[in-house]
Design a protein around this nucleic acid. Structure first.
Lengths: 113, 113
DNA sequence: CGCTATATGTAGCAATACTATCTATGGAAC
DNA sequence: GTTCCATAGATAGTATTGCTACATATAGCG
C-alpha cells in the first residue's frame, strides 16, 4: 500500500471505527487493522495526530480513563462527527465509483483519434 | 470532492487514460472529466506537473506535435508505465476493498467492551 | 532483570494536489 | 475589428497530511 493512497481518506476511516463506540488510540489502530483484514496497519505517528486533528475540528470528543494502570485517552463521535461520517461515506461512494470507472477497465481505449 | 482524496491515486488515473492511446495534456484533462462522469475536473496546475513527474519516472514518454497552429506535447505509456498501471489497478482493488469494508457498513459496531 | 505488548505523544520530513498567474493561438460573437 | 472563449502549455508557491524516528511509561512473562 503506497503511503499517499490513504491521504484524504484517513479521517473517514477513523470516524467509521468510532461509530457507535468509544475507543482509545491504540484500540483504533487495532480496529483499523482488523476491520481492513490487515490492509491498514497504521503507525502511532499517523493515528494519534489524526485523532487530535479530528478533535480540534470538533468531530470527536476525548476523555481520560485508567485501565489496569495504563492511562487511556478515549475518543467518541460528536454530532458533527456523525454528520461528517455520513458525508464521508457519500463522498467515498462517488470517489470510488469515479476511480473504478477510469481505472477499472482492463481493455485499452478504442482508437478515437 | 475534497482535494486530498485524489492524493496517491492521480498517477494511476493518468496512466489509465493513456492506456492504448497517445494524448496531450489538455485531452488528458477532458478524458478524466468524461471518463469519471464529471467527478474529476482537474486544473492544469494539477495535471501538467503530474505528467512531467510520470515522465521523469519513466512511465510515460512525450513528444511534440503541432495541430491547427497549436503546439501539443503528446504523452504515451512506456513499458514501465504499462507495468505500473497493472500494479496500480491491483493496488486500487486492495485499497478500495479495505476502505469499503471499514466505511461501508451503515450500522454502528456491536458493543464489544 | 530483560523483553514484549500495551499506551501516548512529538518533531521533522516528503509527497503531492491546488491556487494563482502567465503566455499564446484560432474562431466565434458583437 | 475587437472582444471573448476554448484550446494549449507552464510554473511558483502554498497547505495538507501521512510517515519515520524517537521518547516516555506500565504490566506481565520468562
Amino acid at each position: 500500500m503506497r503511503a499517499e493512497a490513504l491521504k484524504g481518506h484517513l479521517d473517514g476511516l477513523l470516524l467509521a471505527v468510532l461509530d457507535g463506540r468509544a475507543l482509545h488510540g491504540y484500540a483504533v489502530i487495532e480496529a483499523l487493522r482488523e476491520g481492513s483484514d490487515g490492509a491498514f496497519d497504521l503507525p502511532t505517528g499517523t493515528v494519534y495526530p489524526a485523532l487530535r486533528r479530528l478533535e480540534r475540528a470538533g468531530l470527536v470528543r476525548s476523555g481520560w480513563s485508567t485501565v489496569a494502570g495504563r492511562r487511556r485517552r478515549t475518543y467518541e463521535l460528536t454530532d458533527a462527527g456523525r454528520r461528517a461520517l455520513a458525508s464521508q461515506r457519500t463522498a467515498w461512494e462517488a470517489f470510488s465509483a469515479a476511480v473504478s470507472a477510469l481505472l477499472g477497465r482492463r481493455d485499452p481505449w478504442p482508437a478515437t483519434h
